[in-house]
Design a protein around this nucleic acid. Structure first.
Lengths: 225, 225
DNA sequence: TTTAAATGATAGCATTACTATCATAAATAA
DNA sequence: TTATTTATGATAGTAATGCTATCATTTAAA
């Protein structure tokens, strides 16, 4: 029997569920490739349709617009990552070890997950680094938030925040530290590769250095308290 | 005699220097208002032209496209902020006091600077919070960086990094900590107001709490070393 | 005062971001 | 099985966006 992993997605993110048809899965797969290759600004449903070999109208039957598709992709990623974190930190008792594992998962290259046929997690990770913030840095963030579009991100942040609290029950900023870790895992990576003088990793460009920085940041913050 | 503050801008960011004509200053002033009001995605040169009472072509004589204008605005802000930091931390000997002052400048509401007639720094600060990352989260970041578009940001980061080193000469990640402070000063503010569960400030929504968090983060990181 | 530079007015064009319609193919139910 | 819903493909069309070009006029500099 073949195992399969499905991330439960918010229904309001799509018109037709892309996981339930070949065309839908093609939309996910090719949109990840195209956004990664050309960036979100240059990405259009027309180009996506041509890439897949369908028509623009076909895409619009699944997603209202490219913003919703981006939110879908990032939400999927956060959901998948939370699963990875739960899976990979299962059985680890020591919360500091667990927190280190989480930081590593957030800040290092993602290998393709064989359980999800149409999603290339490695590329999706790159998209989340380069385009992820654009999912919420909009004027509609309030409405989108009401529709729970960012729940997977917030859930992940809560999970990380709770591990922080386990490490250090009196620490005063578990949520903010969690969102700082998540954002900086991505931004320091982006800076390292594109604006290296904003980091201390320009020479080697090693993800392990980002991990080391985040570990230092986090554990000096929470140990002191 | 009337004092006037001019930020020296990268020539490659504009076609015609907007600081040297009434129309140019109107472009800056009204673009800040419009982007703040409707967001960068909804912002177009057509709407800007109508708002000013000129024509689209008129705007294009100053800026190649709206991306360059956004980069211009953010670069201007970083340049202005570095001036503010130098000005306001001048004469302060203790680097920890200076660093605290910098964090406060980064993370609290900006009042309008009377020395710059056409720029509303308060609004511009909001734009940098909500849209600033879009200036570099693009596929052209490499080319833009070669043209030195992000120099003001990198300079500011270097200034903050140097203060960190003064506080703690052995600290290993001054640049990364500096960019973390800068980014998080904005992101925690955005989260607090729009996705509050990503922070610990949702109840009161006080900027002073962001400042307290950043101070805690920074000084526990650098003291330990 | 002539010349140059900046602006205003208008036109035009390719692309984007959709919406609508109709035919056909595939899946499902009667 | 046929009937019928459902998904897809093909094509059209439209308003807005992101520009470029031209020419007349106003303003400023030589």
């Amino acid at each position: 029997m073949k195992l399969q992993l499905q991330i439960k997605m918010n229904q309001a993110l799509f018109i037709r569920n892309p996981e339930q048809s070949e065309l839908g899965k093609n939309i996910i797969q090719h949109s990840i490739q195209l956004i990664d290759k050309n960036g979100f600004e240059a990405f259009t449903f027309k180009k996506l349709a041509e890439d897949i070999g369908t028509t623009e109208a076909g895409i619009y039957r699944y997603f209202e617009n490219k913003h919703k598709l981006l939110v879908y992709l990032t939400a999927w990623y956060w959901g998948w990552l939370e699963f990875q974190i739960n899976y990979q930190t299962n059985n680890i008792k020591d919360p500091t070890v667990r927190l280190k594992r989480v930081i590593k998962l957030l800040a290092t290259t993602v290998e393709d997950d064989k359980l999800t046929g149409h999603v290339n997690e490695g590329l999706l990770h790159q998209i989340v680094i380069s385009e992820g913030s654009k999912a919420y840095l909009t004027k509609q963030v309030g409405e989108d938030n009401k529709l729970q579009f960012f729940k997977p991100y917030k859930d992940l942040c809560a999970v990380v925040g709770n591990i922080i609290l386990e490490c250090s029950p009196k620490y005063k900023y578990p949520r903010s530290l969690a969102s700082t870790i998540i954002e900086m895992a991505h931004f320091q990576n982006f800076f390292m590769n594109n604006l290296p003088s904003l980091t201390d990793f320009g020479k080697n460009k090693e993800e392990t250095e980002v991990v080391a920085f985040l570990n230092d940041l986090v554990f000096s913050s929470i140990k002191k308290a």
